[in-house]
């Protein structure tokens, strides 16, 4: 629980993204002063975020130090992980590993009391031999098939070590499942919004999704709570991938997995490894997080998916009436 120095502010990284802005919105409504930072160009802020101080700074450069200097920061919510695996490996390593390390060191140097780090469930990997559900204690196996995800694994492992190495900073590492929502622009949301969505013939694994609104609440709960550690954050339901596509009102077509692999390897920026997430289950269990932070998702699964694709479907099918 953050109690001291009510005037101190909360730093949210990745503020150019939809999730960080949703978190900032919730914090401001709760009466906190929030500052944001992102390495990407800063967007024009929505009306309810007007007046929020935002900075553009690479997490691994000295500019990020200036954000910490001269102000009292009581909590850092590090949501700015570069998750787009089609981006250059070197850039992802600089931001996710070196940048995160710098931010974590700055937390210690500047007496920050709480650090929440957003990791991802992708680090578990989707394998045919995955049991269900995967807990926080299960091995991180994604690197086995896909060494390019090393930056995400290293960020997670660095933050997990931090939990015990620096007890003066209460650190919570979150490993959410597929994050979707109207303002999210990651690989899975983009995929769901495609005009025609391919699925792998003969495969229909169980999947999970979490709405940005629910994840934003989870981040705020993690900050406000007392527990520390590494936690999975699942969604409202586990469902087959093709049922998810139905809920996303997607027009689908089957492709053989070998053809999909060949196409992605040859022509697409989409990471080939992610194909496994459409073949094999990677279902995570989040009982520990729900219990520790008294959290549960509130957006139903149908609304979670429908809201993610609503704008895209309106553009793609303007003739169809919508509720």
């Amino acid at each position: 629980m953050i109690t001291e120095d009510a005037r101190a502010c909360i730093l949210v990284t990745g503020i150019a993204g939809g999730l960080a802005q949703e978190v900032a919105r919730k914090l401001r409504i709760a009466g906190h002063e929030v500052i944001g930072v992102d390495y990407r160009p800063l967007p024009v802020l929505a009306k309810d975020l007007e007046g929020m101080t935002v900075f553009r700074a690479s997490y691994n450069k000295t500019a990020i130090e200036d954000v910490f200097r001269g102000r009292k920061i009581k909590a850092v919510l590090h949501l700015g992980r570069e998750g787009n695996l089609s981006k250059r490996m070197g850039m992802r390593f600089d931001l996710n590993v070196l940048g995160s390390q710098k931010i974590m060191n700055l937390c210690v140097d500047h007496g920050v009391k709480v650090l929440v780090v957003l990791s991802t469930f992708h680090i578990y990997g989707a394998h045919p031999h995955n049991h269900i559900p995967i807990s926080e204690d299960d091995p991180i196996q994604a690197g086995y098939d896909f060494p390019e995800i090393a930056d995400a694994i290293q960020l997670d492992s660095m933050a997990s070590t931090w939990v015990y190495k620096h007890p003066e900073v209460r650190t919570v590492v979150l490993r959410p499942t597929n994050v979707v929502g109207p303002t999210i622009h990651n690989s899975i949301s983009t995929f769901l919004r495609m005009k025609r969505v391919p699925y792998l013939a003969g495969f229909n694994p169980m999947v999970q999704f979490i709405h940005e609104e629910d994840l934003a609440t989870a981040v705020v709960r993690a900050m406000d709570g007392n527990a520390r550690g590494v936690f999975n954050v699942g969604g409202p339901a586990v469902l087959p991938w093709r049922v998810a596509l139905e809920l996303a009102d997607a027009r689908v077509f089957p492709v053989p997995s070998s053809l999909a692999s060949f196409y992605i390897r040859t022509f697409s920026a989409f990471p080939e490894y992610l194909i496994n997430f459409y073949k094999y289950p990677c279902v995570i269990g989040d009982d520990a997080f729900r219990k520790a932070f008294d959290w549960a998702p509130h957006v139903p699964i149908d609304e979670t998916l429908a809201s993610t694709v609503a704008d895209a479907r309106r553009r793609q099918r303007p003739e169809e009436p919508r509720a």
């Binding site: 049991h131 003969g202 495969f203």
Partner: peptide, 23 residues
């Protein structure tokens, strides 16, 4: 079994699961 197209889905909808101790 989970690697076999179509069969993997039929058996899991019917209640079969991978023979892993945690399952």
């Amino acid at each position: 079994f989970p690697r076999v197209p179509f069969v993997n889905e039929v058996i899991s909808r019917g209640g079969a699961t991978l023979g892993a101790p945690i399952n």
